[in-house]
Design a binder for these strands. Structure first.
Lengths: 358, 358
DNA sequence: CTGTTAGCGCGTTCAA
DNA sequence: TTGAACGCGCTAACAG
């Protein structure tokens, strides 16, 4: 570990000064030759480049350059769940896609960080070499860490985060979106509506919604969607799922549906399309027809190929969300002050809702 | 941009020396107090930490620390296609999942880099502050860049890469796996077998396989799977798909199947399960029954919920592959010399193959 | 247990 | 246009 890095072949790596010396110029000149950030005569530049090739110099060390310039070219993306888990959520993927796309234009790399496993040693959120950070649907759990970043002067953009944390927030109309769906169910005649929510904390736990849990929830998105549903069905109860997969929805759905018929809701508001699909499968498992015996709505507007019918849901554009966050980051890095914005959602009628059986 | 970073509030940020001075100790002592990499009395440590709080010091600057230690705590993951696109491939996701999981244990972050968009300025593969790099199913397209990394002393691990590039390679038995499937089809009596391959280059192009294209392909995996198929069906022709999604498979399948019956293959070897699913849908689109009118096999062994039947395929564990790569990286970083290894694949009989109609 | 001495490799003043 | 000096912020040696 000691001295240098391990070099299987070759001696200590050449530095910019070495190159400069070999080219017969000063280090600063060589630096300019590489970065193009200043005037150099073509002849000297060529000489420097030639010297570099001879010495096997492959360009300025990124670490040293970063220290000097104060920038690493890396944008961090903080995701609420385990990285692997998040990879299974199409909304996260699409958001990252939009973000990566937009950032790619400015040439920044994307460093994935998880809100969980904070016990990482080598690379904590506070000590990551990032120029900016995007929080993807993170709740309030990481707020303390944000403070550290702010003090370090690192711009932060949140996606569906806490408004008023003093950072640009790219939001989605989670509350209104869910309210629209709830109204749709109410207009169809449903009175007995249950919820299947996204996890309320950073933990994966399946279980009945409790008011305490809601009150102490760190997951902003879930809380807002609950609020939207309760705007129409006050006090609506339900299950908080252990994730946002079809399997999670199926498990939650079973809990809600595998009960005496009198206790069974006539409609379920699932907080994601994947959860909704799971609920529908759970209904099928129990011999219930959708929408005849049970209406189900989702959230997101992703394509769920697994389903034989189109889901009634509200659609958001996760891609746009990510791209907007990417633009906000770019602006921030250029010294601008991007504004928060809120993306609307659009109602999408599908074949999973109808009047209650009664 | 000149002076410091932009500070909306507060003066120039405190440095470790400032903290040390305020605590009345030397910088090195303060450093140890933060990193724990040495002996400090509890009292001095407390004093240092207190001084840090007073000054609003939030811990050592990651960039400076990296420059000094030569490590950033970041592992790069190079993926062959656009980041967003790759996010849609379950095998990539699972591999990243296994990798992230394993790396998480050692506390390293994961930096996503794409083999495409090499024109990024701020952060090229050559200039990324990474301690190690994992290539996920990248072909031979990035070999030159690898050389640069090697010269920089950065360890590289490939997944399904070129053996003998002098780096640890975590492989999967792509050729044998496909051969097993081909033999299965041959044993069923098929003689007229076509291929739907993964993209052969870093570009997304749908079209007939040409020998030239195969010869100049950069995508190792696709080439090996073609070889496996041709071990049994020499010269088998087919289509190279524009990606590895169901839609890509459907498009390729249509090209192969929407022809006079006499020209139609009796079986198709798709190079991924998703492609296979797409082919099956294409068959259905044309009124062909699987496996009665057409047999289809895939590769990967992922669950394809979209399909009404189980796919005949070979299964690999992408998760294990990623994890093995993660372990290799960890070993390499600890100065070890991990060995290459090759994961086997296991045949999975499904309901998508049967004897030819004839 | 603590302090001192040196850089890590580079980019940026300035003056020439 | 180029060169010389300096320091970004930190940590690895060693000496005390």
């Amino acid at each position: 570990m000691g001295r240098q890095r391990e070099h299987d072949a070759g001696e200590a790596r050449a530095t910019l000064s070495d190159v400069a010396a070999r080219a017969g110029v000063s280090p600063s000149t060589a630096s300019i030759a590489f970065s193009g950030q200043g005037p150099v005569s073509d002849s000297t530049k060529a000489r420097v480049l030639a010297a570099a090739v001879e010495l096997g110099y492959t360009g300025p060390d990124p670490l040293a350059r970063s220290l000097r310039t104060g920038r690493s070219g890396i944008v961090g993306a903080l995701i609420p769940r385990r990285i692997g888990t998040s990879f299974r959520d199409p909304v996260v993927i699409q958001t990252l896609d939009g973000l990566a796309e937009e950032l790619g234009g400015s040439g920044s790399g994307l460093l994935l960080l998880s809100e969980r496993e904070r016990e990482t040693d080598r690379l904590s959120l506070e000590a990551a070499p990032i120029d900016a950070l995007v929080l993807l649907g993170c709740g309030t759990a990481s707020l303390p860490a944000l403070d550290v970043l702010r003090r370090r002067g690192i711009p932060v953009v949140t996606i569906e985060g806490d408004e008023g944390a003093g950072v640009a927030n790219i939001d989605v109309d989670n509350r209104r979106g869910t309210r629209v769906l709830a109204e749709h169910l109410r207009d169809l005649g449903h009175r007995d509506v249950a919820l299947v929510t996204l996890p309320l904390t950073t933990e994966d736990r399946l279980g009945p919604l409790s008011e305490d849990e809601i009150a102490s929830a760190t997951a902003t998105i879930a809380v807002r969607r609950i609020a939207g549903a309760r705007d129409v069905f006050p006090g609506a109860a339900g299950i908080s799922a252990s994730g946002s997969t079809i399997a999670d929805g199926r498990a939650a759905g079973r809990l809600l549906l595998d009960v005496p018929e009198s206790d069974r809701p006539t409609a379920i508001i699932a907080q994601s399309d994947l959860l909704a699909a799971g609920v529908i499968f759970a209904a099928h498992d129990l011999g219930l027809a959708v929408p005849d015996d049970l209406s189900v709505v989702g959230f997101d507007g992703i394509r769920v190929d697994e389903l034989p019918m189109r889901l009634t849901t509200v659609a958001q554009s996760a891609q746009d969300k990510g791209a907007a966050a990417g633009r906000a980051v770019t602006e921030l890095l250029d010294g601008g002050h991007p504004e928060s914005r809120c993306f609307p959602v659009t109602f999408q009628a599908g074949a999973t809702t109808g009047p209650p059986a009664s």
